[in-house]
Amino acid sequence: MTAPETSIKNRPQFINVRVLRQDEPGAKSYWELHKIKYEREMNVISVLQRIAAQATTVDGKKVTPVAWDCGCLEEVCGSCTMVINGRVRQSCSALVDRLLADNPDEIVLEPMTKFPVVRDLMVDRARLFRSLKRIQGWVPVDSYYNLGPGERIPREDQERNYPLSQCMSCGCCLDACPQYQKIELTQNEGESDEEFEQRQNAEFDEAFIGAAAISQAMLFNNHPTGKALAAERLEALSGPGGITTCGNAQNCVAVCPKEIPLTRSIARTGRATTLHAIKKWFER
């Protein structure tokens, strides 16, 4: 890899940033152009921080700060996913010098496309976390008392599981997936928050679960205690919106910022669910 400084010859004085904004769910989206001073070693987070502080467009119009989600700023929390120059990624690791090397005219920021927009670049990723319940993504231990160590684990198992366990639920793989379709419901008049959540969950549970959760199922099925729920997980992945919905486009693995071997997990799931179906047939 080359140093970012060397990839850009003439440092500009200003950067143009085009942001696709939306005031609230269901509202019409609109473009807004911001111009900020160039500084060394900027990333899209610091760009958005400058935009928030000046809250004025390129035409001098006073506007509200652009809303966006962020957390750790070092690509381990998964908060700051958005579409930058047409590609879904984390905004903290989107370095301005690199972006300008690709497109010196402007940086284009859009919200993720497969999740409902809350406001501007903020989206609602509740479905992503719901999918982790769908596959029972946990180790079903007896209790949280001290009961001695867990089983000994061979190094190769750890080395297979650790990459899967780095999934930070950022949603890049889902946004890039052709089979993963946006679900956007609105709360009905008189419907309580709980009722709405239930209706929404029912909808989520029928739709494609996506690469991240499939890979998590493989993670837990490969754990000595976690595999106690292996059959339940495979069952969940055999139903509607499960593994058979995957169209093998392989976009997921291409956009994963953690380079998690998602397609390998998908292939393993495919084999495991087939075996699971055969086993079930024999046990009838």
Binding site: N146, P149, G150, P154
Partner: peptide, 20 residues
């Protein structure tokens, strides 16, 4: 005891060649 519990909960701690 905390580390043993976290181990049981599935934390992928690095392992020695023997699996400890």
């Amino acid at each position: 005891k905390v580390i043993e519990l976290m181990d049981r909960l599935g934390v992928p701690f690095n392992r020695t060649e023997e699996g400890f």
